[in-house]
Amino acid sequence: MSPTSNTVAGTRPDKRLLLSIHDVGPRFSDEIERLADRLSALAGEARFAMLVVPEHWGGTRLADDPAFQVRLRRWAEQGVEMFVHGWFHKDAAQHSGADAFKAQFMTAGEGEFLNLSREEATRRMAEGRALIEDVIGRPCAGFIAPAWLYGDGARQALRDCDFAMAEDHFRVWRPQDDAVLARGPVITWASRSGPRTASSLFFAGLARFGLRAMPNVRIAVHPGDVTKQSILTSIDRTVRAFLPSHVPSRYASLLASA
């Protein structure tokens, strides 16, 4: 029997649960495997997306790891949607004003596309897409910037690259015409400090009740989540809380109903 055969009975087809695993690449291969197994057990096999980083922080490279390439292609063949998730996932730029606030407080130096030029953002997006599509043997679903942060250059590059979808903290949209496909905050967790973990656990608890009326609910998990049992427990509770009302779905379904 499918893990979702009982929990999704009676769900409304117009209410979606969109699950995703971030920072997918060889650097976190074991953590990604654990998260994929966990989400499959909760919501059904391959009912989630993966956000792939070609060269995380300039370290381990997807292009140099045939074993991980095989695993990534297998997930794609099972139906997992693959998004381009930057190139380095590291922000090496100097920021000022509002961008400085975002770079310091909304991420730990990982807003790679917050201050890139249009040309550089286009190059990284295009090269990331080419590499990932060569590995998985099919088109990518779209692009999602590291830490969900986009500068003006990145937003222009999204249109240049003709990605079908993009996502930030509060929406999923179609870059070509800026049509909004889904609204609402992403439920996610923070593992890098005690206070941030506590804050993310608190928000997830509120979201399990406060977001039930939303037609589309997004839940995102990261490799660091596996380091804290409190986060894993919260992930399980949060996914299960939405299963009676929301169907685990593909991001592509947003385009079909736009």
Score class of each variant (00 low, 15 high):
T4W: 05
T7H: 06
L17E: 10
I21F: 09
I21A: 10
D23Y: 03
D23W: 05
V24A: 06
S29T: 02
D30F: 08
D30L: 12
D30T: 08
E31G: 06
L35H: 07
L39C: 07
A43L: 01
G44S: 02
A46Y: 04
V52D: 00
V53I: 15
P54F: 11
T60I: 03
R61T: 07
R61N: 10
D64H: 14
P66Y: 08
Q69C: 12
L72R: 01
R73G: 00
A76C: 00
E77H: 10
Q78F: 09
G79V: 02
F83P: 09
F83Y: 14
G86D: 13
K90G: 01
S96A: 08
S96Y: 00
A98Y: 10
T107D: 09
G111I: 13
N115T: 12
L116G: 07
S117D: 11
R124W: 14
M125E: 02
A130W: 12
G137P: 13
R138Y: 01
P139T: 04
A147Q: 01
A147K: 02
A154P: 04
A154M: 03
R155I: 02
C161P: 01
F163K: 04
M165I: 03
V180P: 01
L181E: 05
A182M: 07
R183W: 01
P185T: 07
W189F: 15
R192Y: 15
S193N: 04
A198E: 14
S199T: 09
S200Q: 09
L201C: 06
L201D: 05
A207T: 03
R208Q: 14
F209G: 04
R218T: 08
I219W: 11
V221T: 12
H222N: 08
G224H: 05
I231E: 01
L232M: 15
I235A: 06
R237K: 15
V239L: 09
A241V: 05
L243Q: 07
P244C: 08
S245F: 10
V247Y: 13
